[in-house]
Each structure stands twice: as structure tokens, then as C-alpha cells.
Amino acid sequence: MENLFLIFILLPVVVGGGVLVGAWLLTRIMPGDGKVDSAKVAAAKAAVPARGPEYVELTANRKKAYRVGYVMLLVLAVLTVAEIAVSLGLNSVALLFIVNILEAAAILVVFMHIKSVWTSKETH
């Protein structure tokens, strides 16, 4: 019983504490001591004008990209529900496999933008 206590209480504490201490150490030992490298931020910001047509385009792109994310979230939710429904109701491995393939294809195409492997145009 003591051993059980040891494992269920101590292990999460040790693992969690280790992660926290590790994260804290990470911020300490890093160059710049956790402070924002203002020169780098400024240089990056200088590359994008504060206002003007480029900024407008950037915000439009941003909105579009976020919208793609929400749509993907919806798609993944629907497909996961479909997966559960198929396995509970129809119990058809073939159909389940098709749902899986769809889900994987969505992740590959949208999330991982697989197209960028063979398109030569470089965005960043």
C-alpha cells in the first residue's frame, strides 16, 4: 500500500516538478536570459510596414489562415464522430478505414501542406 502511494502521488509530483524545473532552467540558461531580443523583433517588424497595402494583405491572409484552421477543426470533429458512429453502429472495418484515410488526407493536405514539398515557389 505504501508503494502504491509512492507511485501514484510521488511519480506525478516528480515528473511534473521535473518538467516545471526544466522549463524554468530552460528560460534561465538560454542566451538573452529570457528577455525579448528587441533588436531581432524590431528588425522583423521593419520588414513589414506598419500600414499600407502589404499590411492589409498580411491581415487578410491571417484571417483566411485562421478560418482554414476553424474549418479543419470542424472537419476533424465530424470525422471523429463518424469514426465512433461507424464502429458502434455499422461495425464495418472498410468504412472505418475510409474515414481514417479522409482524416489523414485532411491533415496531410491542410495541416502539413504537403504541396510545399514539390512546389518550387518559396514563401518564407
Binding site: 538560454m30 538573452g32 529570457g34 528577455k35 525579448v36 531580443d37 528587441s38 531581432k40 523583433v41 528588425a43 522583423a44 520588414a47 513589414v48 498580411l58 481514417n100 482524416e103 489523414a104 491533415i107 496531410l108 495541416f111 502539413m112 501542406h113 518564407h124
Partner: peptide, 28 residues
């Protein structure tokens, strides 16, 4: 710390596609 920018963020992209890949494996 401002290490990445809109023009230079390969590190983010690499981590992101790795993470999606882990997700993809779990889908199966």
C-alpha cells in the same frame, strides 16, 4: 525571444509538421 519572423520560421514549420505527423499516426 523574437527568433522567428514571417520570412524565417523553418524551425516552427518543422516542429509543426512533426506534430501533425504524430497526430496522423494516432488517427490510424
Amino acid at each position: 525571444k523574437g527568433h522567428f519572423s514571417a520570412e524565417r520560421h523553418w524551425g516552427v514549420e518543422a516542429t509543426a509538421i512533426y506534430w501533425h505527423y504524430v497526430d496522423l499516426v494516432w488517427v490510424f
